[in-house]
């Protein structure tokens, strides 16, 4: 595991119409590692994730304070274009959201095409689909509609779509929660593989999943970061009492 810090969050607070939903969060995301973010619903873990690629600020009345550094540069700094930032920090959502009017191929190529990025589309699409472990299942129907894929395949398609623009960081917002157990296991395996090349931040409500896929885990409660520790430590020997209560299932 690389010890370089990829993203550094410093005193991050997030607001929605004047109400704070995230209070003064500070943590580091190490390069090529998987950070799992857990906590009961409404604890701000999704908001935290959305701050990392500045999707949070798209909601009406949303704002943030504090710093988020990507490779040492503040992502809210002057001259940083949120649109360009989102190409470096990709995102996968809770429910698969393939673009219904585009074919499987076009979905994966969408980020490149609509951003007018250069490159051999065929090669990029194949690489992204292979990286998302979907290539063998769809290579014969790339021109087909994503509507014909199963939920798990659609989610992997969305992962491929995010990978195609070659992000440095991949954010995943409960990517397996809408999937059946088998499809969910495949996505977990995939997260394991992605770690070799990408920095992954994954929000999950499933503690077993967090324990299986992540290197470190952050526990959020009521908009605050309670504890951020190496995963093995957080689940077996938590420093904070509230963490222990949550991971042992006493609340949440």
């Amino acid at each position: 595991m690389d010890e370089t810090v990829r993203m550094a969050v410093r005193g991050l607070s997030a607001f929605h119409r004047g109400t704070a939903v995230l209070h003064n969060v500070t943590l580091d995301v190490r390069d090529r590692s998987v950070l799992a973010v857990i906590g009961p619903s409404g604890c701000g873990k999704s908001t935290f994730l959305r701050c990392l690629n500045r999707m949070h600020e798209l909601a009406p009345g949303a704002s943030v304070t504090g710093e988020i550094l990507l490779d040492g540069r503040d992502i809210h700094g002057p001259g940083v274009d949120p649109v360009a930032l989102r190409r470096r920090v990709g995102m996968v959502f809770q429910r698969p959201n393939p673009f219904p009017t585009m074919s499987i191929f076009e979905n994966v190529a969408a980020g490149l095409r609509l951003n007018r990025m250069a490159g051999d589309l065929d090669a990029v699409v194949e690489r992204a689909l292979r990286a998302a472990a979907l290539w063998d299942e769809v290579k014969d129907r790339l021109r087909g509609s994503p509507g014909s894929l199963s939920g798990g395949q659609q989610q992997r398609l969305c992962i491929a779509r995010a990978l195609a623009v070659e992000p440095e960081v991949l954010l995943m917002d409960e990517p397996a929660s809408a999937l059946d157990p088998i499809a969910s296991a495949r996505v977990e395996d995939l997260v394991h593989e992605l770690k070799a090349r990408y920095t992954v931040v994954i929000v999950t409500h499933n503690m077993q999943q967090a324990a299986r896929v992540s290197d470190s885990t952050a526990f959020f409660y009521l908009g605050r970061l309670v504890e951020h520790s190496p995963t093995a430590e957080l689940f077996t020997n938590p420093r904070e009492e509230r963490t222990e209560e949550y991971v042992t299932g006493r609340f949440g």
Binding site: R86, G111, L114, N115, V165
Partner: peptide, 10 residues
């Protein structure tokens, strides 16, 4: 769908 597009940096 809109979020999916924006998250790709479109």
């Amino acid at each position: 769908l809109r979020e999916g597009g924006l998250a790709l940096g479109i």
